[in-house]
Write a protein that binds this DNA or RNA. Structure first.
Length: 750
DNA sequence: TATGATTCCATTTTT
DNA sequence: TGGAATCATA
């Protein structure tokens, strides 16, 4: 046991070795949460002798699940394999398949992702003769998904007005079509299982008997059905351990309910409460800044995060003229850091919305710095990837309407709109799948013979594929590509994008090969499920590049250097409500988001904001974010704000910047430190208004540059005449009564 | 059926 | 502003 729990602090130890009964762990940012969960699972297996297959650990991402398994494998070799670890969705999908017969669904049901769901809804809405402008699929999807999160089926869905009445109508029809397609959407995976658990005592008993201990990570972001699921599993043995941080709850808009963790003690009055408050990740300054900001929230579990780490450098706040200026400042600082021995993968840039990434991408490209943008379009969402998967899905489960519709005329095989409309109509009327309608239509002599022939050819194609394949995913996929001429169809486009599409197809094939090697029993069902439940962040491998992502995507990650950009009112915190009144709950969530952003940083935190920002078509004046003002002034250094931006060349930027600005000697002449681990491959060129070396140095070393007016507590106000390298830099200042050399940290710009 | 024009949309997005 | 999706037209 001692080897198992070595190096844990008393609270961590208590959490890891808690033997049973409800337990809630409030785990602040960087408090070693993952470690505790892993150690706890190991403890249960090794000490309490709980068989691994009777332990269920729920994580919020597939990546977290993988990590947990890997770590556990080191702690308790050989035990990790049979442990139940996964996201709510993955776990529930697995349980639904295992009990499919009992529940009365196809064992090989497909999982519809958001875009599949939207296609289905679009069809249902127009099938009901409704105006799709009045009832956009996206909005209806939101209502249906919310209902499922709250555990409400069409029957429980509350009708309040004419809109909800129609939504309910759509909901009913949608469920019918989903059933005909043997498809489940994301929400269904959990909702459906909960419904069945409630309705079927024998299922309930078998699930209860199966899991002896349940652990849930990121509990602050659990929604109602998810909680109901967990509660149902633990009702008897009550061995439920939940871990989370209410300050890091950032998915309220998706149904996450912080009350689940805040009110855990009401649900389980005998719950043990443990708070992990020691932070092992960040410097004192970063932690104090993050704490100070989040302390402005009213509704939170009181806690005091502390650290034994040293204070570290002050947080640098950079004021910029506009968004382009901001991008240049940040990139310049990144280059300086690279010169000072930090690697590219040590640095991350976080922003509130994806839209902000573009300017930075441009700047990074100009600076020749490799970067990686996490999120945005999921790999498996690319059209060509979806096409290939749709073929596989149809071959595997012909009833999958959405996939069938997607591929029936791709590549074009002369099955036109009218034919399809008739088919859809027949399927809806008969309550059958499209596939059934397709077969019937081919055999219906009252249909035009040309159409019947084309349909017949398509049916034969599917037949052939189904027969000739040995059903291993990769083989099947290759057969699909060759028999349908899909690659040629792409190639025929003859565009540069087509090439990258073909590459993407190749990547799918190789991921299939990989899967076949890794999986115990490779099969199409499992592969398809894996692919729909996998996100882009899950696939991302760390390369030697700077990482850019939204704050949401950064949750759970950490970096030595973190830049948070766009700290302006309206941007971060994001929008306010319509009437100008801001919603306090929303503002608190924004503040938590800010807390998450800051606490990703280990050593250095850079914040930036722009006084002017392009928003869609026009330029808006921006005010610095209140979150900056909530940071204790002592913890930060303000840089910039004094530069006026003449930049006549700015307009030339749009056409692509080619020349090297005249002033561009500063960066090239910079004396690099000896500890270089990575170097920017670019030359000394930089785009936009050039930031000279002293300015860049400001950003890094505390905002002191020649020419600036600075204040010293003893000598008063003076002007900087020179800055010498060093950390912190020594600054020569001309005071009224003579020149002095002073360490920059004793100076404040005025 | 392929293209160019037009229109629509834009917060975050663990699954 | 920019991109994706849908529409119109040859």
């Amino acid at each position: 046991m001692s080897s198992l729990t070595q190096g844990l602090n008393p609270e961590q130890l208590q959490a890891a070795t808690h033997s049973g009964g409800p337990l809630v762990v409030f785990a602040g940012a960087g408090s070693g949460k993952t470690r505790v969960i892993t150690q706890r699972v190991a403890y249960l297996i090794e000490q309490e002798r709980v068989p691994p297959w009777r332990i269920l650990a729920v994580t919020f991402t597939n990546k977290a699940a993988r990590e947990l398994r890997e770590r556990l494998d080191k702690l308790a070799p050989g035990q990790a394999r049979s442990l139940w670890v996964g996201t709510f969705h993955a776990i529930c999908a697995r349980l639904l398949r295992a009990h499919a017969e009992q529940i009365g669904i196809r064992k090989d049901f497909v999982i519809y992702d958001d875009s599949d769901q939207k296609s289905m809804l679009t069809r249902v809405i127009s099938g009901l003769g409704l105006d799709d402008r009045q009832f956009p699929a996206k909005q209806v999807a939101y209502h249906i998904n919310t209902a499922k999160q709250e555990g409400k089926g069409p029957d429980q869905y509350e009708v309040r007005d004419s809109l909800t009445r129609t939504v309910r109508e759509i909901y009913v029809e949608y469920e019918k079509r989903m059933a005909a397609s043997s498809a489940l959407d994301f929400g269904d995976l959990i909702y459906r299982l909960v419904v069945e658990i409630k309705a079927r005592p024998e299922l309930r008993e078998s699930l209860r008997a199966r899991f002896q201990h349940v652990l849930v990570d990121e509990f602050q972001d659990v929604n109602h059905v998810q909680f109901a699921f967990v509660e149902a599993l633990c009702e008897q043995h009550r061995n439920l351990c939940v871990v989370g941080d209410d300050d890091q709850s950032i998915y309220r808009w998706r149904g996450a309910d912080r009350r689940n963790i805040l009110e855990f003690r009401q649900h389980f009055p005998d719950a043990t409460v443990i708070k992990l408050e020691q932070n092992y990740r960040s410097t004192g300054r970063i932690l104090r800044a993050a704490n100070a900001v989040v302390a402005h929230n009213v509704e939170r579990e009181p806690k005091r995060l502390w650290t034994e780490n040293e204070d570290g450098a002050k947080i640098t706040v950079v004021a910029c003229d506009d968004d382009r200026d901001e991008a240049n400042m940040v990139v310049q600082a990144m280059r300086m850091l690279l010169d000072n021995g930090f690697a590219r993968q040590d640095q991350a840039l976080l922003y509130r919305t994806h839209a902000q990434s573009r300017v930075f991408e441009e700047s990074l490209r100009r600076a020749n710095l490799p970067y990686r943008v996490v999120g945005g379009l999921r790999f498996y969402d690319r059209a060509e990837v979806k096409d290939l998967l749709a073929y596989l899905r149809v071959l595997h489960n012909p009833e999958d309407d959405v996939s069938l519709l997607r591929i029936i005329n791709k590549p074009a095989r002369g099955i036109g709109k009218t034919t399809l409309e008739r088919m859809v109509e027949a399927a809806t009327r008969g309550g059958t799948s499209l596939h059934a309608a397709l077969l019937a239509m081919r055999d219906d002599t009252s249909q035009p013979s040309a159409a019947r022939k084309k349909l017949g050819a398509f049916i034969d194609l599917l037949q052939t594929l189904r027969k000739q394949s040995d059903q291993r995913p990769a083989t099947l996929a290759r057969d699909v590509l060759s028999n349908t001429g899909y690659i040629d169809y792409l190639r025929a486009e003859d565009t540069p994008e087509a090439d990258s599409r073909i590459e993407n197809i190749q990547e799918v094939l190789s991921s299939m090969d990989q899967y076949q090697q890794d999986a115990e029993q490779p099969n199409l069902t499992e592969f398809l499920e894996l692919v729909t439940l996998e996100t882009d962040a899950d696939r991302s491998v760390s390369e030697d590049s700077i990482t850019m992502m939204t704050v949401h995507a950064a949750k759970g990650l950490e970096f030595p250097i973190v830049f948070v950009a766009g700290l302006e009112e309206e941007t971060f915190p994001s929008h306010r409500g319509f009437g100008g009144e801001e919603d306090p709950d929303e503002m608190e969530e924004e503040r938590r988001l800010c807390y998450v952003a800051f606490t990703r940083a280990r050593e250095r935190l850079f914040l930036s904001y722009a006084n002017m920002r392009r928003v869609y078509n026009d330029v808006k004046i921006r005010r610095r974010s209140r979150f900056i003002d909530e940071i204790p002034p002592d913890e930060m250094t303000m840089v910039g704000g004094r530069r006026s931006a003449p930049a006549p060349q700015r307009s030339a930027l749009g056409q692509g910047f080619t020349g090297v600005p005249k002033a561009a000697s500063g960066y090239g002449g910079y004396a690099a430190s000896s500890g270089n681990r990575a170097r920017p491959s670019g030359g000394s060129e930089s785009g936009g208004r050039y930031i000279d070396r002293s300015e860049a140095n400001d950003i890094l070393e505390g905002g002191i540059a020649p020419g600036m007016r600075v204040q010293h507590s003893k000598f008063g106000i003076g002007r900087v005449t020179a800055v010498a390298d060093g950390v912190p830099p020594r600054v020569t200042v001309a005071f009224p009564d003579g020149s002095r050399s002073i360490i920059s940290t004793f100076l404040t710009p005025v």
